Amino acid sequence: MNGCLLKVKEAFDDLKPSEKKVASYILSFPEESVGLSVGELAQRCNTSNAAIIRFCKTLRFDGYRDFAIQMASDISSQKAEEDSYTDIQVGDDLETIIKNVSYNNKKSITDTLLVLDIEELKKAIAVLHSSKRIDFYGVGASGLIAQDAQQKFMRINRYSMAYTDTHLQATAAANLSAEDAAVFISYSGETRDIVETMEIAKKTRAKTISITKFGNNTLNSKADIKLFTASPETSMRSGASGSRIAQLNVIDILFSGLGSIEYSEIKKYLDRTRKVRAIKKFRD
């Protein structure tokens, strides 16, 4: 499964009206959509050929042919009932809750792998590798992800800070430089304080990386490098747990990717911090 239909679902709310017509038809009649020409699909969606092409470009496909090929592959491999997220219902027994929460968290990681662009990941890791300072910005649940990132990167002696207070975010961003990197975390990509902080960071010429849901949003439209996550849209999400798990996974990928190319240099720091942390334990 290459995530074609997943991308349509994730980006749906951010699409333009003419593009939503296309998305609605494809999601309602995925098998019927396979093999249609641009003109045939436009006719069934009651829109234009140009709208179909824009729709494909919005979803980051090279064109309609690329989209059609990947959608056909999706249809042949996807089992909708098995691949759907499961909402948590009031009154569920504990065994059902354990199963559904665990499944949704696992699926958020699996789906995130389908919307992550490996070339963008390579760019992000290269930027982190060359940066003197790495800042992480987030509020609420995304702020916890920023703090997790800080402690990971501190372990390898990279100058990094996590900012979750909006006033401190603005102050820190104003003091970035062209040699620094700033990572902005927001599932919706529409958190006003995070967007405003990125605008401040952009003025310093720091490299900016966004981690948001797939699709067009205000935050990733301003970022130099765009990384995407996917998570369940269920009514009882337990504090945005799905998006949090997906964001943590992206941070782990960035950290591991950087660690891989810097391992000979950072091994001594990992050993040092491991020894220091061992002292804090009652037993080694």
Results as ranks from 00 to 15, higher is better:
Leu15Glu: 03
Ala206Asp: 07
Glu120Lys: 12
Pro232Cys: 08
Leu59Pro: 04
Ala23Pro: 08
His129Gln: 12
Glu196Asn: 11
Tyr85Ser: 06
Ile118Trp: 03
Asn220Gln: 04
Ala11Phe: 01
Gly239Thr: 03
Asp148Tyr: 14
Ser33Val: 00
Ser142Phe: 02
Glu199Ile: 02
Ile98Cys: 12
Lys267Phe: 11
Met1Trp: 02
Asp252Gln: 06
Leu270Val: 15
Ile253Tyr: 01
Ala42Asn: 08
Leu144Phe: 09
Gly39Val: 09
Tyr85Cys: 10
Ser142Lys: 05
Met161Ala: 13
Gly35Asn: 10
Leu248Glu: 06
Ala172Ser: 12
Ala68Phe: 06
Leu168Trp: 05
Leu219His: 00
Val127Met: 06
Gly3Tyr: 00
Ala173Met: 07
Glu119Lys: 13
Ser186Glu: 07
Lys21Met: 09
Gly63His: 07
Phe136His: 11
Lys7Met: 03
Ala278Ser: 09
Cys56Val: 03
Ala149Thr: 09
Asn217Tyr: 05
Phe153Val: 04
Phe228Ser: 14
Ala230Gln: 08
Ala162Glu: 05
Thr191Val: 03
Thr47Met: 09
Ile97Tyr: 06
Thr86His: 15
Asp74Cys: 10
Leu128Ala: 08
Asp62Cys: 01
Ile245Ala: 15
Val276Arg: 15
Ala51Leu: 07
Ala80Asp: 15
His129Val: 00
Gly39His: 09
Lys207Val: 13
Gly215Ser: 05
Ile185Val: 13
Gly215Trp: 03
Lys207His: 14
Ile200Asn: 10
Ala246Glu: 11
Gln247Gly: 13
Phe153Arg: 10
Thr166Cys: 11
Val139Ser: 15
Asn217His: 01
Gly138Asn: 10
Leu168Pro: 00
Gly215Thr: 05
Ser160Met: 06
Ile98Phe: 14
Asp62Tyr: 07
Ile53Pro: 02
Ile156Pro: 04
Ala11Ile: 02
Ile118Tyr: 04
Tyr137Trp: 04
Ala146Gly: 08
Gln70Cys: 10
Ser186His: 13
Val183Gln: 08
Arg274Asp: 03
Ser188Met: 04
Lys79Gly: 00
Lys275Thr: 01
Asn104Val: 01
Phe184Ile: 04
Gln147Pro: 01
Asp62Leu: 12
Lys281Pro: 00
Lys207Asp: 05
Gln78Glu: 15
Ala141Pro: 06
Lys9Leu: 04
Thr218Ala: 15
Phe61Leu: 06
Ala126Trp: 01
Ala141Met: 13
Ile134Pro: 07
Thr197Pro: 06
Thr218Cys: 12
Val34Cys: 13
Ser241Glu: 03
Cys56Asp: 05
Ala170Gly: 00
Glu32Lys: 14
Val276Gly: 13
Ile200Tyr: 05
Leu270Phe: 15
Glu120Gln: 15
Ser241Phe: 05
Thr234Arg: 02
Tyr159Arg: 14
Ser231Gln: 07
Ala230Leu: 06
Gln247Lys: 13
Asn49Val: 02
Glu19Ala: 12
Asn157Ile: 01
Lys7Val: 04
Glu233Phe: 06
Phe228Cys: 04
Ser235Gln: 09
Asn49Asp: 15
Ser102Gln: 06
Leu113Gly: 14
Asn104Thr: 00
Ser48Pro: 05
Ser33His: 00
Asp148Asn: 11
Leu168Arg: 14
Val139Asn: 07
Arg60Met: 06
Phe29Ala: 15
Ala230Glu: 02
Met71Ala: 12
Ile185Pro: 09
Thr166Gly: 02
Arg44Phe: 01
Asn49Pro: 14
Lys106Pro: 02
Lys122Ser: 10
Leu258Ala: 03
Ile261His: 03
